[in-house]
């Protein structure tokens, strides 16, 4: 009989110890050939020991469980462990991978073991399907994690200060850099106007010009000159900004 080897990867020691102990009872024929404290160690263990099964925590330092899985897909069966149900557990509870939600109950672990035993008898599934599942998981993960830029780093003295975007009155293009103007100070940052437009919340930050984005919350009023250009007066800055023709439509219904 072929010996079954598995690895366990979780950054929290009590959990590794627990899972190892439970597995030794539920599946005495299986040998845990390695324990990893982070994603990089997990990858190394899988490369070096070639286990049939890997129990991977998703949130790990270095590399996440999903990153590890992407790199080793097709080399071993995967069982993910996490307290986060944001990845829509059921959707991925298929043949390609299994999924254990913390706190793991004995029954659920038993079920996972039975599934693994059954699957080990079947021929290995093509890496394509695993890749596909991984892709879906990653997408779900990224979607739920996606949010708008809320803080921006800027050089300040000999350190870096982190400015909430709410405090920024406007961004304007300035040769190689972008000027970030707040109530009292202004900073030069590396992000381009284009990048900022993609990353900032479009409901709060409006592009008004090829080289300018204004924070709508800081607008005192917008008047329209007879020549049809928009002129923005700011609440806490003396200068006025001009809305170019291409972006005037933002203010049309006002």
């Amino acid at each position: 009989m072929v010996q079954i080897r598995a690895i366990i990867a979780d950054d929290e020691e009590p959990i590794r110890v627990y899972i190892k102990a439970k597995l030794s009872i539920l599946w005495p024929e299986m040998i845990i050939c390695g324990e990893a404290r982070n994603g990089l160690e997990a990858l190394e263990l899988i490369e070096n020991h070639g286990p049939q099964i890997a129990f991977l925590d998703i949130q790990m330092p270095g590399l996440s469980g999903l990153d590890v899985a992407r790199q080793v897909a097709g080399k071993c069966r995967l069982v993910f462990i996490t307290a986060h149900d944001q990845y829509a557990v059921e959707a991925f509870d298929n043949e390609a991978v299994d999924y254990l939600l913390k706190p793991i109950t004995d029954d659920r672990l038993k079920k996972a073991v039975e599934r693994l035993k059954k699957r080990l008898n079947n021929p290995f599934q093509g890496p394509e399907e695993i890749q596909k599942t991984m892709q879906m998981m990653l997408q779900a993960f990224e979607k739920s994690g996606k949010s708008y830029l809320r803080w921006i780093k800027a050089q300040h003295g000999d350190g870096v200060i982190i400015i909430p975007v709410d405090d920024v009155c406007y961004f304007s293009k300035s040769e190689k850099y972008t000027r970030m103007v707040t109530k009292k100070k202004d900073f030069l940052i590396h992000k381009t106007i284009q990048t900022l437009e993609e990353e900032l919340d479009p409901h709060e930050f409006w592009r008004i010009h090829r080289g300018m984005i204004v924070n709508a919350r800081h607008i005192e009023k917008v008047s329209r000159s007879i020549t049809g250009r928009g002129i923005i007066r700011l609440k806490e800055r003396p200068e006025t900004l001009i809305v170019s023709r291409n972006y005037l439509h933002i203010f049309k219904q006002m």
């Binding site: 304007s172 010009h209 090829r210 300018m212 008047s223 007879i226 020549t227 049809g228 250009r229 002129i231 007066r233 003396p238 200068e239 006025t240 900004l241 001009i242 170019s244 023709r245 291409n246």
Partner: peptide, 15 residues
Amino acid sequence: GKVEMKDTGTYRFEV
């Protein structure tokens, strides 16, 4: 009104 930002686009008068 003080207009400090020099504008590079072209505008059409529309009333």
